[in-house]
Each structure stands twice: as structure tokens, then as C-alpha cells.
Amino acid sequence: MEQDSMTHPVIDLKGLSVRFGARQILSNLEGELRGRSIGLLGPNGAGKTTLIHTLLGFHEPSSGTAHIFGRDISHEAKEIRALIGYMPERDAFIAKMSCVQFVRLMAELSGLPAEAALERAHEALFYVGLGEARYRTLDTYSLGMKQLAKLAQAIVHGPRLIILDEPTNGLDPPTRQRMIRLIREIRDGGRAHILLSSHLLRDVEECCEEILVLKDGRIATYCNLEEERRANLKFLEMEVRGGDGAFAEAIGKLGCEYALVGERRIKLVLNEGIEIADLYRIAQEQRVQIRRLNYKKDSLEDIFLKAME
């Protein structure tokens, strides 16, 4: 998998457009998504689900194409689907089947031999926390359990890319936490990439490294959350006590831009190579107490709202 993602992007959008009748749903999407966990964000009707469905080969692109691990969605849909595990947004199950039978059937359809499919169905259900309830029919499951069963069927065959469409929809807080924990575990295991579509920014913030924001069928922004956060680490605001302005001057000598706000507050921009520990060292030398130190961190909400402007 690592080799695959190094040589090919996870998803490579090449002018992908999708049109339903006269309505343009996705317009000329371009970009290479390489992250281990990619959050797909956007307001309702932005085209998130259509993008997922098109990647799965459910809809034909009207123009352009996309590649998943280097395979073209227009010509190699079946090969691509063998590499993907998909958890749909809506309630989806096969009636009159126990959960273990259902997950086994899904594994078999992905090409696993019957015995291996049964073994992995048990494993997947234990993994998501449905081990004790695996012989119950799906009709008797609660909403949270159904969501976990959908996750189990998406991972049972060990896909390289797991597409999760609104996985925490309708879940109570403990079940949501469990779902998030599972997604993070899969991500941290490094064996699969995750594409998580959600309108809940918190879910995406907790699980994803990169985000792709769609707006009106176009890419509004694509960024690495960690890099965005790191970039914003540089803006600092401090409240100090003691000293006679020598502390601010000493900071200025480091080459940092600063501004005094009143007697006690200093705003500054940290230069490349200067750490917060350096500020504490100078404060000790100048016999100044740092009472408060904040850096303004751009939240995902800020990034999302900026993209929506």
C-alpha cells in the first residue's frame, strides 16, 4: 500500500465533471489527494456524495476522469472497487440475515473464499465491537449498531481505501466516540487510506490530516490541516508582569516583529528557527513573568468558513 501511495496519489482528479441532465453537479475537479486520511467537507448539495459515487463508478463522469491508486475510474471500475471499502450514508443492510452472515456475504462478494470470509467476518465484528451481537439479525440492531455493522462490512476484505460517508450520522455521543476511535485506529495502523465525508467539522478535525472542501461542485480548498495549524503557531500573544520594556526589546533583537499593547501585553510574530522555549529563556534573563501565552490557532471551522466565502 505504501508503495502504491508513493508512486500514485490515492485519488487523482483530472478535470472530473458530472452532470445529471441539465444540472452540473461537479465541475472540473482537479487535484492530487495523497493523505492517509482525507476529509471531504462541504455544505449540503456541494457534491460530496456525488464525488464518492463517481469514484465508485456509480455515475459516469460527463467529462474528465479520476484515478484511484493509478487506476482509471472510467475503465477500471471493477479493479478499483476491489481496493475500496465503502460505508454508505443511508441505512443499508440485507434483510433476514444475521450480522455475521451479512458481513461474510460482503467479504465473499469481494472475492474472499467462503471460509476466510467467515473468519474475517468474525474478526471484523469483534474489531468494531459487535462481537457479542454478531448472531442477531440486522433488523433488530439499533442505529448505532447498524452503523458499526456497515463499518465492519467496509473493512472486512481489508481494502486499501476506505470511503466513509457520514459515519457518525445519528449516533449518540458514546457510539460516536467509538466510531471516531475506530477510524483513527485504522488511520494510525497505516494499512489503509481513509476518505471521510462529513458535514460535522469536529469528526473531520479529529480523524483527518487533509481536507478537501467542495462548494457548488467545485474545489473550494484543499489543504493539510497540520500544516495550516503549524503556520498559525507563529502568531503569539503574551501577557507579562515585571520588567521595564527590556523584555520586548530583547525579543526584537531576536528579529521578531512585535507590538506592545498596553503595559503588559505583547503581540509578536515568531520567526523561523525561534521556539517558544527561547522566549521563556529571555523572560528568565530579564526577570519577567509570562503570565499568559496564546497562539491563535486556525480551527477547521475557520478554514471551512474561509473556503465558503
Binding site: L56, F58, R81, Y86, R90
Partner: peptide, 10 residues
Amino acid sequence: NALPLYLARP
């Protein structure tokens, strides 16, 4: 809604 589950596989 089981059709997407079948058709999302090979």
C-alpha cells in the same frame, strides 16, 4: 438500500 453494498464491490 442494499444495492450500493453489492455494487460497491468488484
